[in-house]
Nucleic acid binder design. Structure first.
Lengths: 141, 141
DNA sequence: GAACAGTCTGGAATATATCTAATGTGACAT
DNA sequence: ATGTCACATTAGATATATTCCAGACTGTTC
């Protein structure tokens, strides 16, 4: 996604394209992992426009509310974020806690009986086990 | 689950049955929600055996390691816990953040191509949308 | 160019989790 | 019954993650 596209997507979410907000969105868009707020803060400050911690958190909140960014459900201490590009599921390593993407596929909805009057928006899968590195380490260790 | 059963399950996990540990396990077993560590701490101290915060955290860690308790993957600040009784999926409300159980059903595994050399232990579904209360509030509001 | 809404900032405050060092407890060999 | 060992617990200090706050800045509109 190029600069113009990021700018447009921010505006489509009703958000001004400020340098700090742009930097957060640009980093999330190009980042393959699922960075924590602290990592995003550090990354956008490695290059130019300085951004305070509070601003980084504010912008992440705004981006999530605007639906441009997803907060990933993991059980670690720090929240992790993810630009809403291609849909994917998540694999969480039991050993090292890393979160990796798994190719998207559709999932069977629950029976409407167990869903009741809830309004369902999306289903996401969380896989658990050992990531490739940890699986190898266990096998050879 | 009665007292004896809890005691046995602790010992089967290689854990001594101390009053504090028992209290945590007993509360999680009877609790229908998915309490945070702070809620568990408060609950086990409402009745008798006082337990310190550190002990509550230690015991939760031990119980998770022993496989008796699950740490639920949600995106809130505080970790949430769940006695591993009946398997279930989770529904997280977009509006109020409550975590509710959805009846278990088996989920199609990902293609082995996208899984690679990872070792898969379990798959869990996370549904998002509006819980019954919030759905009604929106409809009438 | 004044007023305004939205944004940014550093630092303080809060929430959450872990560490530390001292102490307590039960099992068991002596 | 005593000493010892491993495991548990405790209060308080510390670390980490997030939010709040009050003031300053910016771009737009009248």
């Amino acid at each position: 996604m190029n600069a113009e596209a990021i700018k447009r997507s921010l505006e489509s979410g009703g958000l001004r394209c400020t340098p700090q907000r742009y930097a957060v969105m640009a980093f999330l868009t190009e980042c393959k992992r699922h960075p924590t707020a602290a990592e995003i803060f550090e990354a956008v400050n490695r290059v130019d426009p300085r951004s305070s911690r509070a601003t980084t958190y504010n912008n992440l909140r705004d981006l999530v509310q605007a639906g441009l960014v997803r907060e990933v459900a993991v059980e670690g201490r720090a929240a992790r974020f993810d630009a809403k590009g291609m849909r994917h599921h998540h694999f969480i390593c039991d050993r090292c806690g890393n979160v990796e993407d798994i190719e998207w596929y559709n999932v069977r909805r629950p029976a409407s009986r167990s869903l009741g009057k809830r309004i369902l928006r999306e289903c996401e899968l969380i896989f658990r086990g050992l990531c490739i590195k940890c699986a190898q380490r266990r096998a050879s260790g």
